[in-house]
């Protein structure tokens, strides 16, 4: 996955070297600009078993700030925000690998460096007994839950 492009960023930004896997890093730029979750909508995407995006609904595209063509075929962690603790995603993958449903609050990174919070539920797509991919549905979280997660994720990142 390519590094983020500073020319896409809106406003003042901070640079981070985000470790996605043990040996894969991505340079990302973040701002303090939060995009509100669109009221009444769901953000829906599907990936293959490797986490490569195969389907994105209009809300997903709009909130990400990317064009649809820039998202399809990319790893889902194109949305990974450096404020999210790695342990949350380890838990996600451990849960999905047990063929169970994962749920959690996630801060996502936009193409323009801004962010948006979601309550995400991810389930394995099981067809004829085999996992063919994953569906992720995000809905609007409450501000109270977001505030709790900001504190919790900061603590988790510090004690890493």
């Amino acid at each position: 996955m390519l590094d983020m492009n500073p020319e896409d960023i809106k406003g003042e930004y901070t640079e981070h070297n985000l470790t996605l896997y043990e040996d894969i890093c991505r340079k990302v730029f973040t701002t303090e600009l939060e995009s509100p979750f669109p009221k009444g909508y769901l953000i829906v995407s599907r990936t293959d078993t490797n986490g490569i995006i195969t389907h994105a609904n209009d809300s997903f595209v709009e909130m990400s700030g990317y064009e649809k063509s820039e998202l399809i075929g990319q790893p889902h962690n194109i949305l990974r925000h450096p404020d999210m603790p790695a342990a949350a995603f380890k838990d996600l993958w451990d849960t999905l690998n047990r063929r169970e449903k994962w749920r959690g609050y996630v801060k996502n990174l936009r193409k323009d460096g801004g962010f948006y919070w979601v309550y995400a539920i991810v389930i394995p797509n099981i067809r004829n007994g085999e996992v063919e991919g994953f569906t992720s549905v995000r809905r609007e979280p409450s501000r109270k839950k977001i505030d709790e997660c900001i504190k919790l994720y900061a603590e988790m990142s510090q004690t890493k």
Binding site: K101, I121, N125, R127, T135, V137
Partner: peptide
């Protein structure tokens, strides 16, 4: 139908 079932499954969480 499978996609809608998966979607409904997430809504019931």
């Amino acid at each position: 139908a499978e996609f809608m079932i998966d979607l409904m499954d997430t809504l019931l969480s």
